[in-house]
Measured scan of single mutants.
Amino acid sequence: EEKRQVKQVAKEKLLEQSPNSKVQVRRVQKQGNTIRVELELRTNGKKENYTVEVERQGNTWTVKRITRT
């Protein structure tokens, strides 16, 4: 359940930055209360990979860091 929520948060964050792209989740890793989500962003056939680190704060998820990989 929490992985599902985190995927959603990570996707939304990337789509905010580039709204007309397609996002696909590649991998989800958990480390303590930080969850790392690896995503693939496609814009006009151009692929970019991103890693989004999401942290739990109380009962909400906040995006800590977005890295292009």
Rank of each mutant, 00 (worst) to 15 (best):
N20E: 07
Q24H: 14
T69W: 10
Q24D: 05
N49W: 14
K13Q: 06
E40K: 04
N49T: 14
P19Q: 04
Y50V: 09
L39C: 08
S18E: 10
R42Q: 11
R36F: 15
E55P: 00
L14I: 09
S21I: 04
E55A: 06
R68I: 10
K11I: 15
Q5Y: 08
T67V: 12
R56H: 06
I35M: 12
P19K: 04
R27Q: 07
E16I: 05
K64P: 01
L14E: 01
I66M: 05
E1M: 05
S21W: 04
V54K: 00
K30R: 12
E48S: 06
R42T: 15
V6L: 07
R4K: 09
V9I: 15
E12K: 14
L15G: 03
K64Q: 06
N33M: 09
K46E: 08
S21M: 04
L15D: 02
P19R: 04
Q57L: 12
K46A: 08
T60A: 12
Q17F: 14
E53V: 12
G58C: 05
I35W: 15
L41H: 02
K3S: 13
R27L: 09
K3N: 14
E48K: 06
K13S: 08
K30P: 09
K7W: 15
T60Y: 10
R68T: 05
E1K: 11
K30M: 15
V28D: 01
R27W: 12
K22C: 08
I35E: 01
K11F: 06
V63S: 01
K46P: 02
R65L: 11
N33S: 12
T51G: 01
S18M: 13
N20F: 04
A10G: 03
R4N: 09
E48T: 11
Q5N: 08
G32F: 05
R65W: 08
T51Q: 06
E38S: 10
V63E: 01
Y50W: 14
R36M: 14
E38L: 13
L41T: 06
Q24N: 11
S18A: 13
T62G: 08
V54A: 02
E16F: 03
E1W: 02
K3P: 04
Q29E: 13
E2D: 12
R65C: 08
K13L: 06
K11D: 01
R68C: 06
L14D: 01
G32K: 04
L39N: 00
R26T: 13
P19F: 03
T60I: 13
E16Q: 09
K46N: 11
K11W: 06
G45Q: 08
E53S: 05
T62E: 13
K64W: 03
T69K: 09
T34P: 02
V63L: 03
R42F: 15
R68H: 13
V9G: 01
K22G: 05
N33Q: 09
N44Y: 07
E12W: 02
K64N: 05
Y50R: 00
S18D: 05
L14F: 04
V52K: 00
A10K: 02
N49L: 15
G58A: 04
K22Q: 13
K30G: 12
L39A: 07
K22L: 14
N49A: 09
E48H: 06
Q24A: 12
V37T: 00
V37N: 00
E1A: 11
E12Y: 02
V28R: 01
G58N: 09
T60E: 15
K47T: 13
E1H: 08
T34D: 04
R4I: 07
I66D: 00
V28F: 09
Q31P: 01
L39M: 09
L41M: 14
E12R: 12
V54D: 00
Q29T: 15
E1Q: 09
T60C: 06
K47M: 11
Q57F: 12
K11L: 12
K7C: 11
K47Q: 08
E48C: 06
Q17E: 07
L14S: 02
Q29S: 15
K7H: 07
L39E: 00
G45M: 05
E1R: 04
K7A: 15
E40M: 08
E16D: 05
Q29V: 14
E16P: 02
V28Y: 13
V63N: 00
R42P: 00
G45F: 06
T60D: 13
E48D: 06
S21R: 02
T60G: 13
T69E: 12
V23D: 01
A10Y: 01
S18L: 14
R68M: 11
E48M: 07
T34C: 07
W61Q: 04
K22P: 03
V28Q: 03
V54T: 01
G58K: 06
T43R: 07
E1L: 04
V25S: 01
T60F: 11
N59R: 06
V28L: 10
Q29L: 13
V28M: 13
Q5S: 11
E53Q: 05
W61V: 12
L15Y: 06
V9S: 03
N20K: 10
R42H: 13
L41D: 01
K11R: 13
L41C: 06
K3F: 14
G32N: 05
Q31D: 13
V54M: 12
V6Y: 04
I66H: 00
V23T: 02
E40D: 04
E38G: 04
K47E: 05
W61M: 09
P19W: 02
E53R: 02
R65T: 14
E1P: 05
T51Y: 10
Y50A: 03
T34S: 08
E55L: 07
N20H: 11
N33I: 05
T62Y: 15
K13P: 03
T43A: 08
E40T: 12
N44S: 10
T43H: 13
N49C: 09
R27V: 06
G45L: 05
T69I: 11
Q29C: 09
G45A: 06
T69S: 10
T67R: 09
Q17M: 15
R42Y: 15
K3T: 15
W61H: 07
N44F: 08
Q57N: 12
V23H: 01
E2Q: 11
E48W: 10
V54E: 00
R68F: 06
G32H: 04
V52M: 05
R42G: 03
S18P: 02
T60L: 09
T60W: 13
V63Y: 01
N59P: 14
V54H: 00
K22I: 13
E38K: 07
T34L: 13
V54N: 00
V25K: 01
T69H: 15
T43P: 01
E2P: 05
N49F: 14
T67D: 07
Q24C: 08
E12A: 15
G32M: 03
R26D: 01
S21Y: 05
Q8C: 08
K30Q: 14
N49R: 13
N59M: 09
E2I: 12
I35Y: 15
V63P: 05
E38V: 10
R4W: 09
Q31H: 15
Q8M: 07
R26G: 06
R56K: 14
E38R: 07
T69D: 10
K3R: 12
N33P: 07
N44P: 06
L15H: 05
R36A: 07
N44E: 10
R4V: 07
P19D: 03
N44D: 11
N20S: 11
R4T: 11
N59Y: 07
L41S: 04
Q57C: 08
K47H: 13
K7I: 15
W61C: 06
L15W: 05
N44T: 07
V54W: 04
R68S: 05
Q8R: 12
Q8W: 01
R26V: 15
